[in-house]
Design a protein around this nucleic acid. Sequence first.
RNA 1: GCCGGUGUGGCAGAGCGGUUAAUGCCUUCGCCUGCAAAGCGGAUGCGUGGGGGUUCGACUCCCUCCGCCGGCGCCA
Length: 419
Amino acid sequence: MELYSTLSRTVEPLETLHPDRIYLFVCGPTVYDYSHLGHARTYVVFDVLTKYLRWTGKEVFYLQNITDVDDKIINRAKEDGISQSVLARKFEAEYLRDMKSLGIDAVSYYARATTHIPEIIGQVRRLIEKEVAYVTESGVYFNLDTFGHNGELSGQERAKRVSRVSDATKHNPLDFALWKLGEYGEYTWDSPWGRGRPGWHIEDTAISEKYFGQQYDIHGGGLDLIFPHHEAEIAQMESLEGKHPMVRYWLHTGFLTVKGEKMSKSLGNFITIRDALKTWNRDVLRYFILLSHYRSPLQATDEGLANTAKGLDHIRAIATKDKGADAEGRRAFVEAMESDLNTPMALAAIQRLAGNGDLEALREYGQILGINFLKETSAPLSVLHEIRAELRAQKQFAVADLIRERMVAAGITITDKPL
RNA sequence: GCCGGUGUGGCAGAGCGGUUAAUGCCUUCGCCUGCAAAGCGGAUGCGUGGGGGUUCGACUCCCUCCGCCGGCGCCA
């Protein structure tokens, strides 16, 4: 398989550190609110990547962190008048529920920041011992001057950067926090430097080091995490162990856009996953997401989703008779997936497979993509269809058409046979 | 300002240094149908942002300009 890595800005063959075993880390959510379709995109993509790799026989350890200690959580908990842990546990559960409704189930292990405090403190301590971090009265900071590879991932030269986070005690305004001293309520821990809480970036490296070691294969996340978050992770981990690169394949998903703008909490233009699921089912949402390449921006519109739903119906409508294996279609699907997870191309292959009646492939590939391409029938629906058929046979068209009208309005597809 | 990305038909969105530029939706005609829908068959849609360059040949590679989007130290 070939994957595009942000680190090299090129598509490279996937060569893993261990044969047949892949370590994949994806930045998880900060659990202070409901997740939206932009998040859904990223997690669907990595769900599909993992399922595809497993389908090819690889063992994938897919690790995802849950950021449950953070400014946003502290502030939201204060606003809502509840404790940080109650808020975090609630939205962690909501997140997992959303993931489940989207059919995202490839993650091997979810790791909370708050259950890895000893590992985090351990890393901070080691970074201080390595003399790449220093302690001030406000916290512990990473000294970016000590790290030669800085800026490698984002292409940003540090001399040209401007820091927005000001803290007079930092040696350099660009240095970032590893440990923040102070009392932050419930989520405050004792450390060798005093009571406080972790900085943002340190949880990921503490968690990934614990489960994967100092070096691993793939790190994924949204495009917006490249800088500074992923740069900081690299600085922390590589300074600690000297292994370079910490991660060879950095995969970043493009934004879901609304009227050309990034879908985000701050712009208020977001649709939560559960709201979207009120109108569109998970097959449609996944199909919609996979219809574009994961690195391209994707326009979210009602029209687009409606078209997607029709397209999916079309596949189901034509994939009825099993005509055996379509070797060419199967090859096209696999080739597309091998080529930097080109799901739009893979879905074009799915169209062919449906047209050519390779139902087995549709079932198998549908599991990789998490989409059911085959028509489902349920008992209640079959009964209704039977009643309509009988009415039509008796030429009771008025009643038959009324039933049809109502069924279509309810989003149920009906296919009549000639009388 | 700096860095990164992106610009393909009515819409969404792929690909490729060289036959008619995927696929789906949309539009339209026919078949089918009790009528529709679905399906099947056909048709149409001034389409590769502008300008240079490399090349026998560029949508594809290079340069440049323009537009749009994002990041710039706690956004997937």
